[in-house]
C-alpha cells in the first residue's frame, strides 16, 4: 500500500518577476495525511491550485495516480476531492442541491452517497437549508461533504480551519482524522498552524518563500526534535572545549541566548556539571530540554539547521 499517488517534480510558478512557487518536489503515498506547512504567502495555495489544474505551472509536472495533469480534460480528478481556500456554494440552492450538482459533475450514481456525506459531516439535519444561510464552520463541513461525496481516494484541503473558532477547529480536525481512518482516504492538508499539522499529519512538507525546505515523516521530525541538555555557564568556549575533549561530545552548540546545547545522547547531566565545576567553571543553570516543532520550524525558516540527523 506504499504506492505514490501524487508526485510533483520541479513545480514552478513565476509571476511578474517573482517565483511564487520555486521548483517544488513533493510525493504523497497512499494512506498519508500530508501536512503542507508554511506561513501565509509561502506558496501553499498556488501549489495546490497547480496540482488541481486551476493554475498552469511555468515549469514542472504534476502526476496524480500516475497521470499528468494538463490543460485539457483530466479524468483522474474523479479520484480527487478538494476544498481550496474558501468553500463556495450556489447561494440559491440548498445544501443537498449543491451536493446533487457536484454529484452530477463527478458522475455519482448512488443515491445514498448524499446522505452518507452529509451524515459524516453532521449536516444531514440541515440538508434542506440554503447554503447561503450556513455559518463558516458549516460551510467548511459542507465543503468537505462535497469533496468526499464521490468517494475520492485523495482529499485535498487547503487551510480547512481558517477563520473557525476553537470548537470548529476541533470538529474539522476530528473529521479529517475520521476520514483517514474509516474511509482510508489519503489526505493533503495545508496549514500555517503548526499545532494543527502536528496533531494531524503523518508526513510533513515545509514550504517557505515558494521553496520546499523539508519533506519528512512526522515520526522522523519528532525524532529530530530530540532532547538536549541546556547549560548556562560563565565561560562558554572553555566549557565547550572541555565537554568535547573530556566527555567525547560531538554535537555541541551555543544558541542565540548564549546557552550551551548538548544534543548528544547518553550523557548524564550530573557528570557534565561535575566536570565543569571541577575545572572551575560556574554552572548557573542546567536543564534537560526538548525542541518543539515550533522551534524546529523557526530554525528551518530562518535558515538554521536543516536536516541534521
Amino acid at each position: 500500500m506504499n504506492d505514490v499517488i501524487l508526485k510533483i517534480r520541479g513545480l514552478r510558478k513565476h509571476y511578474k518577476g517573482v517565483n511564487a512557487v520555486d521548483g517544488i518536489d513533493m510525493a504523497l503515498q497512499r494512506g498519508d495525511i500530508y501536512g503542507f506547512l508554511g506561513q501565509n504567502g509561502a506558496g501553499k495555495t498556488t501549489t495546490i491550485r497547480m496540482l488541481m489544474g486551476l493554475i498552469q505551472p511555468t515549469t514542472g509536472t504534476v502526476e496524480l495516480f500516475g497521470e499528468k495533469i494538463g490543460k485539457g480534460k483530466n479524468p483522474v480528478l474523479r479520484k480527487v476531492g478538494s476544498v481550496i481556500e474558501y468553500p463556495g456554494f450556489y447561494p440559491n440552492l440548498t445544501a443537498i442541491e449543491n451536493l446533487e450538482l457536484h454529484g452530477k459533475m463527478m458522475g455519482v450514481k448512488q443515491s445514498d452517497a448524499f446522505e452518507d456525506a452529509l451524515q459524516t459531516t453532521g449536516l444531514w439535519e440541515a440538508r434542506n437549508r440554503k447554503a447561503s444561510n450556513f455559518s463558516l464552520g458549516m460551510k467548511q463541513r459542507l465543503g468537505i461533504a462535497r469533496a468526499i461525496l464521490h468517494n475520492p481516494e485523495l482529499l485535498i484541503l487547503d487551510e480547512p480551519t481558517n477563520g473557525l473558532d476553537p470548537m470548529g477547529i476541533k470538529e474539522i480536525r476530528h473529521l479529517i482524522q475520521e476520514l483517514a481512518q474509516k474511509r482510508k482516504i489519503t489526505i493533503l492538508v495545508s496549514s500555517h498552524i503548526l499545532s494543527e499539522v502536528e496533531q494531524l499529519a503523518t508526513k510533513v512538507g515545509i514550504i517557505h518563500r515558494g521553496r520546499m525546505l523539508e519533506e519528512t515523516s512526522m515520526q522522523q521530525l519528532k525524532e529530530r526534535n530530540r532532547q538536549y541538555i541546556s547549560l548556562q555557564v560563565d565561560d562558554l568556549e572553555r566549557s565547550k572545549e572541555l565537554l568535547v575533549k573530556e566527555m567525547g561530545i560531538r554535537d555541541c552548540r551555543v544558541d542565540e541566548d548564549g546557552w550551551l546545547r548538548i544534543y548528544d545522547d547518553g550523557h548524564v547531566p550530573g557528570e557534565m556539571n561535575k566536570l565543569l565545576v571541577r575545572e572551575g567553571i560556574l554552572v548557573n543553570s542546567l536543564h534537560a530540554m526538548k525542541d518543539s516543532l515550533e522551534d524546529y520550524f523557526v530554525r528551518l525558516v530562518e535558515g538554521g539547521a536543516v536536516g541534521h540527523a
Partner: peptide, 10 residues
C-alpha cells in the same frame, strides 16, 4: 469556480 473547474471535464 474552483469546484466547477476541478472536475474531470475540460
Amino acid at each position: 469556480v474552483n469546484n466547477m473547474l476541478t472536475g474531470p471535464y475540460s
